[in-house]
Amino acid sequence: MEISIKYFGQIAEVTQINEEYIEFSGHDVSELLCVLHSKYENLKHKDFQVAQNQELVSEDTKITGETIALLPPFSGG
């Protein structure tokens, strides 16, 4: 399936783009992260959380084709 992935803050600095669509044939978040780590080697040095459909998810959450976002530590206020 094709999924949309959004990158923010220092994660977007690593990927050099804010959003992309990728063809993904795996099942859960950890598999998606494998794909992204191999595409963007420097991601492994970064601290981030993953959101699916605007909710934070864990590595074993199933990818349902919603929008995925990689979120670095929050620093509002």
Partner: peptide, 12 residues
């Protein structure tokens, strides 16, 4: 204020 700092995806 504490909830904003902890839960809202804003990046400075």
């Amino acid at each position: 204020v504490e909830a904003i700092k902890a839960d809202v995806p804003v990046f400075g």
